[in-house]
């Protein structure tokens, strides 16, 4: 729909018509001071993500893809350029942009239900109502029957489902996912990807999903944004023309192989040209 379309100069604060870009990064640079030298995590980066679009960000370690997500989340501010969501410049974190971290960040001292209810409690929703909504969200992510389990009693995949449910409890319009399935075994990961597709299809959420897994990027994304290292920048913005809704059958589509081969080659070329920087850990 809107891929590749750049924000017009001065268009940052303008009202947004439906179906247009929800997330805009304009000329965004981010540098970090590390000991005695400056690290250019991102350099003059432009990116737009349409409302309801699922964009995967693919790149090697140290390409700044996590930094990109943190900028949209408002956890970090750009050194130069602007990040705006829904026409408003991002000045800090907000409940409209829900973050899902690589490791499920659940409170070990709360039950699954209580973890999911937490964002609603913070918002001032009554305890009983929050619990009722939490149960509904848990059912949505396939955790019915585990409401009273503690995170230590859940598998890695289940913990990540619970974390997703908790993020959805904020009722965000944007979902920022930072390699959420990176720590899971291959089978669980595929199941989670299919689950996420099912959830997203019905939600209207805009998603930015960071991964270093090519198959994952292709399977999930409407677009795959490929990033290169030092400095972090976008080297390709690829539309993925696979039918929706995507299911397990999608994986056997011959175009998947083509996309994967192309992206693999691209990444290999850019990896060879780089001196790797350690990935910034949140």
């Amino acid at each position: 729909m809107n891929d590749g379309r750049r924000a017009e100069p001065g268009a940052g604060g303008a009202p947004v018509e439906p179906g247009s870009n929800l997330i805009r990064l304009r000329d965004v640079s981010k540098t970090f001071q590390r000991d005695d030298h400056v690290v250019h995590a991102l350099d003059a980066l432009d990116l737009c993500v349409g409302r309801g679009e699922f964009v995967t960000v693919l790149g090697p370690s140290g390409c700044g893809k996590t930094t990109l997500l943190h900028l949209v989340g408002g956890f970090e501010l750009p050194t130069a350029g602007t990040v705006s969501v829904d026409g408003c410049e991002v000045m800090g974190p907000g409940r409209d942009r829900g973050m899902v971290f690589q490791e499920a960040t659940l409170f070990p001292w709360r039950t699954t239900r209580s973890n999911v209810a937490w964002p609603m409690e913070v918002e001032g929703v009554g305890r009983r109502e929050a619990r009722r909504r939490a149960d509904r969200l848990l059912a949505r992510v396939g955790l019915r029957g585990f409401e009273n389990a503690y995170p230590s009693e859940l598998s890695g995949g289940m913990r990540q489902r619970a974390a997703l449910a908790r993020t959805l409890a904020m009722e965000p319009s944007v979902l920022l996912m930072d390699e959420p399935f990176g720590a899971l075994d291959a089978q669980t990961r595929e199941a989670m990807q299919e689950e996420l597709m099912r959830l997203w299809q019905a939600s209207g959420l805009t998603v930015m999903f960071v991964t270093h897994d090519i198959s994952e990027a292709v399977f999930l994304g409407d677009r795959v944004v490929v990033m290169g290292v030092s400095p972090g920048r976008i080297v390709e913005d690829r539309r993925i023309d696979l039918p929706r809704p995507r299911t397990a059958q999608t994986r056997t589509d011959p175009r998947v192989l083509e996309y994967r081969a192309h992206l693999w080659e691209l990444l290999a070329r850019h990896r060879a040209a780089s001196d790797p920087e350690p990935e910034r850990v949140p």
């Binding site: 989340g73 974190p93 907000g94 409940r95 942009r97 490791e103 937490w118 913070v122 918002e123 904020m170």
Partner: peptide, 22 residues
């Protein structure tokens, strides 16, 4: 953990809520 701090910021918890719950 920094991730917990970010979670609290993401959820927009007040300093008091972050202290009590995190």
């Amino acid at each position: 953990a920094p991730r917990m701090e970010w979670l609290a910021r993401n959820v927009d918890a007040s300093p008091w809520q972050a202290a009590r719950d995190v």
